[in-house]
Amino acid sequence: MSGEVVTGRGTSGGVVSEEFYGRLKAYEGRAAATAGTGKDLVNEPMIRHWCEAVGDANPAYTGPDAIAPPTMLQAWTMGGLSGHLDRSAAHDELFALLDGAGYTSVAATDCEQEYLRPLRPGDRITFDAVIESVSELKTTKLGTGHFVTTRMEVRADGEPAGTHRFRILKYAPAAKGKPKGKPSGERPRPVINRDNAGFWDGVAEHRLLIQRCAGCGTLRFPWLPGCAACGSPEWDTVAASGKGTVYSYVVMHHPPFPAFDPPYAVGLIELAEGVRVLSNVVGVPYDKVRIGMPVRLEFLRVDNEWELPVFKGADGGAD
């Protein structure tokens, strides 16, 4: 989650952001937790649950001489559903300061642990933690915020058992176009005129009509007033059989548009009759659409008023 971090500047002006960062930096070196106590002694059930979750069958973690998986170190210090009782005032103030500035979200980015002695069932865990550093304002893929690094000394029955350095990003989430989910808004309406009304009449009857030049017989799509081959303005139509293949495609990710729910595949479909039609490829995941994939015409109701011709992909060539 820390990928591609670049140094950023506050949007509210350099002086203000520097003053704010000074206030954050003042917490470096202050205690984050003092004389914290693990809520449970190191115990077999929690070890077993952990091993089951991560699929760890190491025999060192079972039996009479069992030790806890060393990577559980932090788990013994967690507040759980009832929360942390041992955080320091400095820790809470720092987080309140960040929350107040809009950096309300948290993402863990780094965990560095050193194990000094194995933990065994019955060990009583105690810990102290210090706020090691607070970064300048950084812009990441997640959003803009400050990295906060804490360093925790963990003891078991009073003996040093390990150290745990933990880095989180306290950030303001990057603006999203909209939450994922149902698209809102209606599909844009086609402009229907005397040159293409026949096509839309066909769609209403669930037929995809291709124009055919009455002079030379050339098929054409989209609809046009005259034939590009011979210039004749006379035409009739043939109904597409509905069979086609993906001639080319793109996957739309951005920009989002109210009536659509990206990502989605837009295909240039070559119909069996030879003309090409642009429409959505449905029925297969957007990232499984491929050039040459066989597709079949369908009519998709996109809202109360409109049905549109789309092409259903035959995943795995099953058609």
Partner: peptide, 18 residues
């Protein structure tokens, strides 16, 4: 520990998430 066998002892684990 799966790779190094059950007698392997973890001393340090330092990870970064992406």
């Amino acid at each position: 520990t799966d790779c190094f066998g059950e007698r392997a002892v973890l001393r340090k684990v330092a990870i970064r998430l992406g």
